[in-house]
Each structure stands twice: as structure tokens, then as C-alpha cells.
């Protein structure tokens, strides 16, 4: 059993790239292990590459391979796909999903879980994923609950939740993080063009600092 297990739970391949790639790289470099549970293949994504390289039916396989590559670049050994469909998480049985999360939590006993802040994560899949993670954690006896660090980016997040509780300096991993974002080329090619062609301060900030809100469990 490796020390300091970190459990990352997101619905879409590429969610890990923007919000936590630097944190994951840093954690693995310091000897920790990472389990990444990714619920869907992002098969309903609107981006089809630039130029268009995918269609609705080929996108799942393309994104599966992109995530494999991203996981390899991140050094993640334990990648688990939950076989759900993009856009449908909120309509599934969230208690059943929470219980699947619960099994993983029991198995790897993470010190920390990273997911989305329910209600502040913009995409319905993000909010539903965060919701089910919180249910899973709250089902544990209090002394066994890992810390839950969440990503929030809805408008009004800071007004409602205050400043992020955790600001992680990942500037040492900036270039590696950019590579991981690039690994999801079908979804990020346009974005990468924008970063490279002009100075995008918001994107640059995201590459060097990762922000989390501790969820009260």
C-alpha cells in the first residue's frame, strides 16, 4: 500500500488537466499515489478537434486514448473508468453512485479526495459528481472521513464561499501541465492555440496556481 493516497473523482476526461494536473504531479513526485476515477468518456463533447478529427461515434475512443496518454504523463497508475455517459450523471441513481465511490474510498483509504464543489461547478455532470462524492464521504464514520478539496468556478463562487482555502503553487509544473492539457487535443486544440498566440492571463494563472475549497463534511 502506497503512502498518502490521493483520490481524484471527475466526470470528464480533461477535468483533471485544468484543475489539478499540477497538484497530481506534485503529489506523485513527493512519493504519493493517485487513483483517478473518471466517470464518462466525454462522449458528448462539442469540440471535435481542429481541424475536425472526430464525429459523435468516434469521439469516445479518441477521448479514451487521450485520457490514457494524460494519465501516463501525470504518472497515474490507477485510472478507473466508471462507464457512464457524458451529460447523464445527474439523472442516474446518485446514491448508487455514492456507494460505488464508497467502495473505492474503503479500498484505497485516501487522505484527501479532490472533486467538484456541488452547485458551484457550472456543468451539471460536475455538480452531480461532487454531490455523490459528498454523500459517499458523509456515509463514513466521522473519524474516517478524508479531507475533500473541491474545484469551484461558477460566477459568484467567491462571494458565496469566500476565497479558496487551498492555493497550491504549481509553477514548477507549468510546462508539464500544459502538455497534459494538450494531450486532450480533441477538446483543447482551440484553447492551446489561444494560449500560444496571445497572452491569456486567466489561463496563465490557472497553469501556475491551483485553487481548492475545502468542503465541510
Amino acid at each position: 500500500m502506497s503512502k498518502k493516497p490521493l483520490l481524484v473523482i471527475f466526470p470528464h476526461p480533461d477535468d483533471e488537466a485544468f484543475g489539478v494536473a499540477g497538484t497530481i504531479l506534485k503529489h506523485i513526485e513527493s512519493g504519493g499515489s493517485v487513483t483517478y476515477v473518471c466517470l464518462t468518456l466525454g462522449e458528448m463533447g462539442r469540440n471535435m478537434g481542429r481541424p475536425v478529427m472526430a464525429n459523435r461515434e468516434t469521439l469516445p475512443d479518441i477521448r479514451r486514448r487521450e485520457l490514457d496518454r494524460a494519465a501516463e504523463l501525470l504518472g497515474i497508475q490507477d485510472l478507473r473508468r466508471f462507464g457512464m455517459r457524458d451529460k447523464t450523471i445527474e439523472f442516474t441513481d446518485l446514491d448508487a453512485l455514492a456507494s460505488r465511490f464508497g467502495d473505492v474510498i474503503q479500498e484505497i483509504a485516501p487522505e484527501r479526495i479532490i472533486t467538484f464543489y456541488p452547485g458551484y461547478a457550472v456543468h451539471p455532470d460536475h455538480d452531480a459528481t461532487g454531490d455523490a462524492v459528498i454523500r459517499a464521504v458523509r456515509a463514513l464514520p466521522e473519524e474516517k472521513r478524508p479531507d475533500v478539496h473541491t474545484i469551484a468556478f461558477a460566477d459568484g463562487t467567491e462571494e458565496d464561499l469566500g476565497a479558496p482555502d487551498v492555493l497550491t503553487d504549481v509553477s514548477a509544473y507549468r510546462d508539464a501541465k500544459l502538455q497534459i492539457i494538450e494531450a486532450h487535443a480533441s477538446q483543447t486544440a482551440g484553447l492551446i492555440e489561444a494560449v500560444k498566440s496571445r497572452h491569456d492571463t486567466e489561463m496563465e494563472e490557472m497553469l501556475v496556481t491551483e485553487r481548492f475549497w475545502r468542503y465541510p463534511v
Binding site: 462539442r46 469540440n47 471535435m48 478537434g49 475536425v52 459523435r56 482551440g190
Partner: peptide, 9 residues
Amino acid sequence: AGHDHEGRL
């Protein structure tokens, strides 16, 4: 498929 000018579906 219908793609917009940026290639999005």
C-alpha cells in the same frame, strides 16, 4: 453533423 465556424458540433 453541423459544425460551427470553430469546428464545434
